[in-house]
Amino acid sequence: MSDRIASLLLIAVGAVFIYLATQIQTAFFSDPLGARWVPIFIGIFLIGSSVALFVQPRSTVEWPPRDTLLRLVLTLAGFIAYGFLLNPLGFIAATTIAFALFALQFGGKPIRAVLAGAIFAVAAYLLFSTALDLYLPTGALFERWF
């Protein structure tokens, strides 16, 4: 059943894709094929394979129960929040929080998780930012002190 739903979704995606492809602007100077055709072919290809899947679904899917789904959504929220907090809070603070959150999800105890997060965040900062000279944000909040 999931296969069928997925294939319907993919057919819809393919259709939208083809429609959007027809809206691509044509440049004045263009190669013989142009910018539109390959996406259109890809869309057709996707729709074709999805129809084949719809006609004969291949496997069943075990979706996780509600509470696990909730955890997954929470983790997803954590990922998103981590990304948005990087610049305001800076790498070290944001990472500590994110690390602790993820560790909790995987069974770590709260205090240990926060501690591990802090250690890891500092270590990572030293390795990547100081030693390897990559850019990691120091955080808008802390910028005044540096």
Binding site: A98, F99, L104, F106, A116
Partner: peptide
């Protein structure tokens, strides 16, 4: 796992 997974993610 509670250390490894967050580390890989970070």
């Amino acid at each position: 796992r509670w250390v490894l997974v967050p580390s890989v993610a970070v």
